[in-house]
Design a protein around this nucleic acid. Structure first.
Lengths: 216, 216
DNA sequence: ACCAAGTTTGCAGTGACACCAAATTTGTGG
DNA sequence: CCACAAATTTGGTGTCACTGCAAACTTGGT
């Protein structure tokens, strides 16, 4: 039941391809690197690359795939009596403080984002992953709360929660890309997160109500 | 300042290509139709197709593109004193009653959806359009309410509102695809919409709070 | 009729990816 | 150590979206 030579080589080859590809992508941009090039640099045939990775985008997204069920973990591990929104609020604030990668706030995520934004294919890929995350969370919520198929609340809750974190992180990322140091970003991000989650909890109310026109 | 022969021909050609392409897509599926085929059927060269449409997906998305600023219209035309959520609630319920296409509830939208879902490329395209809609609404909100760049509320509101309509329509679409008649779908969809927009207004609160474990 | 600008077309790539059959490598029983 | 089967890699060949370019053609204005 040990790991044979075969499996080890496979793992190594896969890793080598992924690493080399990522390096090339960061250095020269996703669209300016051909799979043939990657194959050559990794000393395998093009076919082998496609044996391991179904598409070129998979070469870059690899790690992100794993993050699909992180939201479900937050759900599962919330404290007794703790609502879903509170759990995510806690988790997000914690991610800010520890600069954890799970909401894309780690160091180097600006470089990563730069590469992604330069390629429509990668942008599309990340969105797909976001959708998977949302669907996963929605399913988990529905399952745990025993919601029937006619109850759309789990889906809506999942969408709203992840939309909130997404917008918070997008904003932070934009500031990082603009060269603002993390020390300046973090405190205001904390405030914004607090306000955003407050909004989630208490709703939009009559946000944007236009004052009755009193003509004068 | 009339429309010359040139411009008319252009419009006609574009329309012909788009129509023929759409027909072929619906008949045989997006991925089973080549651009060369479309070109031949439309009696133009492949290059001409790409002159009018940047990508193959553009051939199908064409009409949807126009819908990008519909949400902004809802915002702009809301009544005095009416909050954003209420405006969209009204608009969505109206769309159900009139079976309008603006939220994808029209007849034939199930066929459309079937074609889209069968092709990853088209799915990605529609998501892109959804993103554009969201960004547009967010910008419009921010502009009208005079929100500063540090205020994330417009973005969050836009995301939450469109997420709500998206989920409502997705659900309805799924039922249409399952063959359920519209007459049965509409009433329950109305209820679900009411509840969904209520949720938007008043927030998630402590939704999903897990009861404190009293062991026994 | 004639010229300039706009449009269409053919041609020759490039690059992602599919399919397949021929090597090559690795795990296993004798 | 020697097959032998299964897994893996590889080369080859092909399709299709899409690009860039220069030639041919169409249209508007003179």
């Amino acid at each position: 039941m040990h790991e044979g030579l075969r499996e080890r080589k496979k793992r190594e080859t896969r890793q080598r391809i992924s690493d080399i590809a990522t390096g090339l992508f960061i250095a020269r941009g996703f669209d300016n690197v051909t799979v043939a090039e990657i194959a050559q640099a990794a000393d395998v045939s093009v076919n082998t690359v496609f044996n391991y990775f179904g598409t070129k985008e998979d070469l870059f997204a690899d790690r992100q795939e794993l993050a699909v069920d992180l939201p479900q973990r937050v759900l599962r591990e919330r404290a007794p009596g703790e609502g879903v929104v509170r759990a995510f609020r806690r988790d997000y604030l914690d991610a800010i403080d520890t600069r954890d990668w799970r909401y894309g706030l780690n160091e180097g995520s600006d470089v990563f984002t730069g590469v992604v934004n330069a390629s429509p294919a990668l942008v599309a890929r990340l969105r797909e992953i976001a959708v998977a995350r949302e669907e996963g969370l929605a399913r988990a919520l529905a399952g745990e709360l025993g919601a029937g198929p006619g109850d759309l609340t789990p889906g809506i809750a999942a969408a709203q929660i992840l939309a909130t974190t997404r917008i918070l992180s997008d904003h932070a990322l934009a500031r990082m890309l603009a060269g603002e140091p993390w020390e300046r970003i973090a405190p205001s991000l904390r405030e914004q997160a607090e306000r955003a989650f407050d909004l989630l909890e208490s709703g939009l109310g009559d946000y944007g109500a236009r004052p009755a026109a009193d003509d004068g």
